[in-house]
């Protein structure tokens, strides 16, 4: 199914799935913060954080490597941090000569690089768990309850609804372009660069005008059902005792991680 690309939600009925989305959002953010606060090379802290990820994964009924595999998407960005291996002063580990330059990786540099990478992987793993166990509409509710400005929440809500619709429209545009552009062997398809850019620009422009018209039609459909400028919705989420308990437990674990990684 084409639309499944938008939904990282894995349906389930675990304690994690049922947890109030507000609690999940806050715990996720605090977990990420906790990772950033774990000092470089405090491996115990990182291991404990990973354990927390694995326990939640298991609790949510997901495969144990579910988040580990998906978290690898941060790796390309690691390139930006590679330079710290050679920049942080410390004991030289080797000396690499490339042309006129000499690179000296240091122990401190390597520790710092790995720490950055591990922080990043752990953080994205928790974010994946959040999306995998919480339907996006529930996340939108949670954000509203966490006092995000109303225009932003409404924008997110309508955006989520029309993401698939517009990307299907785009796919059709792209397919039509492909159907019309033949390619000679050894030549670029679709004419000179400027021409190709112009075609892409036209497609974007067309998509914009269609979106504008859709905005108008949706607005009319809302008017027809009594919309007067205020958006009402019911509040299906009420904090239960186990929500508070889980929140407290998670906070205690995060505090413990911070203390243990500083011993």
């Amino acid at each position: 199914m084409q639309t499944s690309a938008f939904d990282r939600y894995q349906a389930g009925d675990s304690a994690i799935h049922r947890l109030d989305p507000r609690v999940k959002v806050i715990i996720t953010v605090l977990f990420v913060l906790s990772n950033v606060l774990i000092p470089d090379g405090a491996w115990l802290g990182f291991v404990l954080a990973l354990t927390m990820i694995l326990i939640i994964t298991n609790w949510a009924g997901l495969a144990w490597d579910f988040v580990l595999k998906r978290s690898l998407i941060v790796l390309p960005f690691a390139l930006a941090a590679v330079t710290v291996i050679f920049a942080v002063p410390g004991v030289a580990l080797a000396s690499i000569h490339i042309g006129p330059w000499t690179l000296t990786p240091t122990d401190a540099g390597l520790i710092r690089f790995i720490s950055i990478l591990v922080r990043s992987l752990l953080s994205v793993q928790m974010a994946i768990l959040l999306t995998a166990t919480t339907p996006f509409p529930d996340l939108i509710h949670a954000l509203r309850h966490l006092r995000l400005p109303q225009p932003l929440v409404a924008t997110l809500s309508f955006m989520y609804r029309y993401l698939a619709v517009l990307s299907d429209e785009t796919t059709r545009l792209l397919r039509a372009r492909r159907a019309r552009s033949a390619q000679q062997p050894g030549m670029h398809s679709g004419g000179p660069l400027l021409w190709r850019a112009r075609v892409a620009g036209n497609m974007v422009g067309q998509l914009f005008l269609r979106s504008l018209e859709r905005g108008d039609r949706v607005y009319k459909a809302m008017l027809a059902r009594g919309y007067t400028g205020h958006l009402y919705t019911l509040n299906p989420h009420v904090m239960q005792r186990h929500d508070w308990l889980m929140a407290a437990l998670a906070l205690a674990v995060l505090a413990a991680i911070q203390i243990l990684s500083r011993l």
């Binding site: 939108i140 609804r161 039609r217 809302m222 009402y232 919705t233």
Partner: peptide, 23 residues
């Protein structure tokens, strides 16, 4: 409306059907 994608503007079916009664 003709195009149900214009008529169904909320993320979930529940929210969409509840929109009229709520308003």
């Amino acid at each position: 409306f003709q195009n149900p994608d214009d008529q169904l503007f909320s993320p979930t079916v529940f929210e969409d059907v509840a929109f009229g009664p709520l308003h």
